[in-house]
Design a protein around this nucleic acid. Structure first.
Length: 523
RNA sequence: GGGCCGUUAGCUCAGCAGGCAGAGCAGGGGCCUCUUAAGCCUCGUGUCGGGGGUUCGAGUCCCUCACGGCCCUCCA
């Protein structure tokens, strides 16, 4: 299990004291799936460290001092246009109930990752700056701006000419993305708010002089990353591979951390992307898969399992279509059984340790997902009774809850993602596929109609009738059952035929059997 | 151009601190009076992408090539 190996490596290479695991995200819209993967990954590592008895804190930052740099597609562009360039914490919330835009989306995301069992200590960038905790870092960065510019050029080949790696909030217009610092005297900075500094927001053209401390300014991204490590004492922090490219933001942040702050780079965890249906897509554009979208597709247990199961360096492409979801369900159930010691799969058992939301929950009886999906589609089946029979004991409250979850998931799967072959739908009229019936099959159906006219209208009785006639007429199971499925479902196979027919209206069944047997066949 | 990852049974993938190739699904066979999507038992010789190398021994380490995916713009 990769998380175990990481934990081991962390304990081996980091100071024996407590670990501080950090992750952060800029709340510029609804979080997308990758941000969620980040939280889960850091939570897993935290869980692993805790499991080994190591003192550990997991902190999570919302970078709501970052500038608002674009309106997501699901919001009104015109309404938010005036706020472009301001810190996310001073942009109004799109809905009532939050003090700011950043807080609104931050809180939404907290809800999402809480559902996945991640409960880091949350902190806000705005509070970090306003409280003065970043002051010393800001001072140091301003004093050594030249060195940082050098580091930037050396590591990333950046052509950045802006000397001060700091952005101050314009006192006139409140924007932070548009300002340029022109001087630093050890107490205050002078700045200009420029109309064309960035393409997506216009500065007011004013300038001024102010103290950069206590929330008046924010470090630029790469430098801020290093500063936060230092200020918060971070010892473990991963990021997506986009940050870990050579000369990328992580390289720069590491160099700044070590050379400017004299602080060792936290244990790095560069992780691969989770693709959904082959696409990644960004949250700020509003396109693509949001964290909450995934939670619409998969219940929290499975969503977390999906992110924890593959090696963190492995790119995973999750395509909810086909048999992906039933397979994921089966795999999760196997992990549960492995954890309980029912099957010998140590790797899976460990995976479960990192995947579970609520350790106690999986004690419930777990009927196979595919089976639930099938039974669900046969009207006569009492799901709870059927599952209780399989279990061999009455269902507990937890069993029923589990079954209800699965039933809801199965319904969703069937209506949105399941291949046609898994859908059982009795056709309202004789399906075209019935035209391919052979004479022998038609004879069989005709005889079946006669026999069923007076048979007991229950699954087992109908089932026996089918078998008797099949045997009497020397038909293979394929021929006999295939004929029934074609006549009713328009397909080659289906659920147990006796129960299927008994679930339907008798007259309807008899009529359909006669239609199918009377139809002229191509052959 | 640089980086990361992938290429293992028909399909989806495990296996990667080197030691006789695995699972699930599909498929074959069998049981439950009944093979037809519920349950149970049983069956897996595949150039582990190609080629070198290290080793007593390599999917498992090193080099190299090919194909595929993604990333290098503050998007995980």
């Amino acid at each position: 299990m990769w998380a175990d190996l990481l934990v081991e490596e962390i304990l081996k290479t980091r100071a024996p004291g407590g670990q501080v695991v950090n992750d952060a995200w800029s709340p510029s819209g609804y979080a997308h799936i990758g941000s969620l993967k980040g939280v889960v990954l850091h939570d897993a590592v935290t869980r692993g460290l805790r499991d080994r008895g190591a003192p550990v804190r997991f902190i999570y930052g919302f970078d709501d001092y970052d500038p608002f740099d674009g309106t997501p597609s699901y919001l009104d562009t015109e309404r938010f246009a005036p706020y472009l360039g301001m810190p996310l914490c001073t942009v109004p919330s799109p809905e009532p109930g939050a003090a700011s835009y950043g807080e609104f989306f931050g809180r939404r995301f907290v809800e999402d990752f809480h559902r996945l069992g991640c409960r880091p200590e949350v902190y806000w960038g705005s509070a970090l700056y306003r409280s003065g905790r970043m002051n010393e870092a800001i001072r140091r960065v301003l004093d050594r701006a030249g060195e940082i510019l050098e580091i930037d050029r050396e590591i990333s080949g950046s052509q950045r000419t802006e000397r001060h790696p700091l952005q101050v909030i314009c006192e006139s217009c409140g924007k932070i993305a548009t300002t340029m610092i022109t001087g630093w005297d050890g107490r205050e900075v002078t700045y200009e708010c420029r109309a064309e500094k960035v393409a997506w927001a216009a500065g007011c053209g004013q300038g001024g002089r102010r103290s950069p401390f206590d929330g008046a300014s924010k470090l630029i991204y790469r430098v801020e990353w290093a500063a936060k490590w230092w200020v918060l004492g971070v010892t473990v922090e991963g990021a997506g591979k986009d940050h870990f490219t050579r000369g990328g933001s992580h390289d720069t942040a590491s160099a700044v951390a070590e050379r400017i702050f004299g602080y060792p780079t936290p244990f790095p965890i560069p992780y691969e992307f989770l693709l959904i249906g082959g696409a990644k897509m960004a949250g700020s554009t509003g396109k693509g898969v949001l964290a909450r979208d995934l939670l619409e597709i998969l219940r929290p247990e499975l969503a977390r399992f999906l992110m924890v199961r593959p090696h963190y360096r492995e790119q995973k492409n999750f395509d909810p279509g086909g048999e992906t979801i039933p397979r994921l369900y089966d795999e999760y159930d196997r992990a549960v059984r492995a954890f309980r010691g029912e099957i010998d799969e140590p790797e899976l058992a460990r995976t479960f340790v990192y995947a579970f939301i609520d350790e106690a929950r999986p004690q419930a009886y777990r009927p196979r997902f595919g089976k639930v999906a099938t039974l669900l589609q046969i009207p006569s089946v009492d799901l709870e009774a059927a599952v209780a029979e399989e279990k061999g004991a009455p269902l507990s409250a937890a069993d029923r809850e589990e079954l209800a979850e699965r039933t809801a998931d199965a319904r969703r799967w069937l209506s949105h993602y399941a291949p046609e072959a898994y859908k059982i739908e009795v056709q309202a009229t004789l399906p075209p596929a019935a035209a391919t019936l052979t004479a022998a099959q038609q004879g069989f159906l005709e005889a079946l109609a006669q026999a069923l006219a007076s048979a007991e209208w229950r699954g087992p009785a109908v089932h026996n009738q089918i078998h008797e006639l099949k045997n009497a007429r020397g038909l293979s199971p394929q021929q006999a059952f295939g004929a029934i499925y074609r006549a009713f479902l328009g397909k080659e196979s289906g659920p147990q035929a006796g129960w299927l027919l008994a679930a339907l209206d008798r007259d309807f069944v008899l009529e359909r059997l006669r239609q199918a047997s009377a139809q002229r066949t191509a052959s």
